[in-house]
Amino acid sequence: MKGIAKRRTASVCLQQLVDLGLLREQKARREKLFVHANVLRLLKSEEHSCASYGQE
């Protein structure tokens, strides 16, 4: 069980970022992905602009 505390810590931190609205949790089979929507939008856009948090 070596390393389990690190995984739990990461899980708690990621969930806090989801709660704050910085990340979006997405299931992919047995895995959970944590997506930063603004970064994805920025990478996909041609104009390279990004909205401020809470103004989407």
Results as ranks from 00 to 15, higher is better:
residue 1 M to V: 09
residue 1 M to G: 12
residue 1 M to Y: 10
residue 2 K to T: 10
residue 4 I to D: 09
residue 4 I to E: 09
residue 4 I to S: 09
residue 5 A to M: 13
residue 5 A to G: 12
residue 6 K to G: 12
residue 6 K to E: 14
residue 6 K to W: 14
residue 7 R to M: 08
residue 7 R to D: 14
residue 7 R to P: 07
residue 8 R to A: 06
residue 8 R to L: 14
residue 8 R to V: 15
residue 9 T to E: 10
residue 10 A to K: 11
residue 11 S to E: 14
residue 12 V to D: 05
residue 12 V to N: 12
residue 13 C to N: 13
residue 13 C to Y: 10
residue 13 C to H: 12
residue 13 C to S: 09
residue 14 L to D: 00
residue 14 L to V: 06
residue 15 Q to R: 15
residue 15 Q to H: 15
residue 15 Q to N: 14
residue 16 Q to Y: 15
residue 16 Q to T: 11
residue 16 Q to A: 15
residue 16 Q to V: 12
residue 17 L to F: 13
residue 17 L to I: 04
residue 17 L to W: 11
residue 18 V to D: 00
residue 18 V to W: 02
residue 18 V to R: 01
residue 18 V to H: 02
residue 19 D to H: 15
residue 19 D to T: 13
residue 19 D to A: 14
residue 19 D to L: 11
residue 20 L to T: 03
residue 20 L to R: 11
residue 20 L to Y: 07
residue 21 G to H: 12
residue 22 L to N: 03
residue 22 L to I: 15
residue 23 L to K: 12
residue 24 R to K: 15
residue 24 R to V: 15
residue 24 R to N: 03
residue 25 E to A: 14
residue 25 E to T: 03
residue 25 E to I: 06
residue 26 Q to N: 14
residue 26 Q to V: 15
residue 26 Q to W: 05
residue 26 Q to M: 10
residue 26 Q to F: 05
residue 26 Q to C: 09
residue 26 Q to E: 08
residue 26 Q to H: 15
residue 27 K to L: 01
residue 27 K to M: 04
residue 28 A to K: 11
residue 28 A to S: 12
residue 29 R to C: 03
residue 29 R to I: 00
residue 29 R to T: 06
residue 30 R to G: 13
residue 31 E to G: 00
residue 31 E to N: 12
residue 32 K to D: 01
residue 32 K to E: 01
residue 32 K to S: 05
residue 33 L to D: 02
residue 34 F to K: 01
residue 34 F to N: 00
residue 34 F to Q: 00
residue 35 V to D: 00
residue 35 V to H: 00
residue 37 A to F: 04
residue 38 N to G: 04
residue 38 N to A: 10
residue 39 V to T: 08
residue 39 V to C: 05
residue 40 L to F: 07
residue 40 L to A: 01
residue 41 R to N: 07
residue 41 R to Y: 10
residue 41 R to P: 04
residue 42 L to N: 04
residue 42 L to I: 01
residue 43 L to N: 04
residue 44 K to N: 09
residue 44 K to V: 14
residue 45 S to D: 07
residue 45 S to R: 02
residue 45 S to H: 04
residue 45 S to F: 08
residue 45 S to Y: 06
residue 45 S to Q: 04
residue 46 E to V: 05
residue 46 E to T: 08
residue 46 E to H: 04
residue 48 H to M: 03
residue 48 H to L: 06
residue 48 H to S: 03
residue 49 S to H: 08
residue 49 S to G: 01
residue 49 S to F: 04
residue 49 S to Y: 04
residue 49 S to M: 06
residue 50 C to Y: 03
residue 50 C to N: 01
residue 50 C to F: 04
residue 50 C to L: 11
residue 50 C to E: 03
residue 50 C to H: 02
residue 51 A to K: 08
residue 52 S to Q: 09
residue 52 S to I: 01
residue 53 Y to S: 02
residue 54 G to H: 03
residue 54 G to Q: 02
residue 54 G to W: 05
residue 54 G to N: 02
residue 55 Q to T: 05
residue 55 Q to I: 00
residue 55 Q to C: 02
residue 56 E to R: 14
residue 56 E to K: 06
residue 56 E to F: 15
